[in-house]
């Protein structure tokens, strides 16, 4: 028990070092260019490679090129939700304030990438399978993931008092993590129209390296892009909360000093 206590404490201390918003802003500002520019370069390279320089598939022809956007989007939809679940855990157990802000910002980006995954999958399914949509286990579990994202987005903004929204959304975020293994293993546990994974941790990929490389470049590019967008939004959110704190503090001081109404305008010289 003692060991777990100290582990919990140490984990808490580790994360709380980065809970300091000032520290995060400095770290984020340093990190941002290293995320943004590689993301743009790799995504453009991967997309051009996939669209124009990778070979056509033996059974799918050129339609296989949809894979280079669909598969990274699908991976990111799941890993983005895993990130959300970690933020939820940090919020519930350690009351980490930055984790709450991160959960607010990851939600919409994750929902958008899940929508891309579903839409590109549909656009791939129509010419290949002969249908836009089927209710097989893989497609349905990803749709559930999309609704989990939407529920999280709505719940975290649903309360007047933000703390209550953070708490409720964190419970949903953590509980929804149950869907992740279902998505991953759906194609193995049940027979589905969706094909099994080509790339697994255990076996050789059943994919030509001429197609694997552009896929990996796209995946890396999209992942960095996801991180870059989340970090930028999170920095903006931290700054916005500072602005709100400064304004309310000034309003308080304004009330104390003049005892009268104080405009909330930024440039309205409150200290004058």
């Amino acid at each position: 028990m003692n060991a777990t206590h100290s582990l919990v404490a140490r984990t808490g201390t580790f994360f709380h070092r980065y809970a300091n918003p000032g520290r995060f802003l400095r770290l984020g500002a340093r990190l941002q260019p290293w995320l943004t520019w590689p993301a743009v370069a790799l995504s453009v390279t991967g997309i051009v490679w996939g669209l124009f320089f990778s070979p056509a598939d033996w059974q799918q022809g050129d339609s296989v090129r949809i894979m280079y956007v669909h598969v990274p989007a699908a991976w990111l939809a799941s890993s983005g939700y895993a990130g959300l679940a970690v933020c939820s855990l940090l919020s519930l157990v350690w009351r980490h304030p930055l984790a709450d802000l991160a959960a607010v910002e990851i939600g919409p980006v994750g929902a958008a990438i899940t929508a891309v995954c579903l839409a590109t999958g549909s656009l791939w399914g129509k010419p290949m399978w002969g249908t836009w949509w089927v209710w097989d286990a893989r497609l349905t579990s990803v749709l559930v993931l999309f609704f989990l994202y939407l529920g999280h987005i709505a719940l975290i903004r649903a309360f007047d008092e933000p703390q209550r929204g953070y708490r409720a959304a964190a419970i949903l975020g953590l509980a929804g993590a149950v869907d992740l293994p279902i998505i991953k293993f759906s194609v193995q546990w049940w027979n589905t129209l969706h094909q099994p994974d080509s790339i697994t941790l255990t076996g050789a990929p059943t994919m030509s390296t001429a197609m694997l490389w552009p896929l990996l470049v796209c995946t890396l590019g999209f992942t960095l892009g996801f991180a870059a967008i989340v970090v930028a939004r999170l920095r903006a959110a931290v700054m916005e909360s500072r602005i709100r704190a400064a304004l309310s503090a000034r309003r308080g001081r304004g009330h104390a000093a003049t005892g009268g109404a104080q405009d909330s305008d930024v440039r309205g010289g409150a200290v004058a």
């Binding site: 022809g61 099994p196 080509s198």
Partner: peptide, 8 residues
Amino acid sequence: HDETYMPK
């Protein structure tokens, strides 16, 4: 289609 991706 199966999970095999192979150039024509």
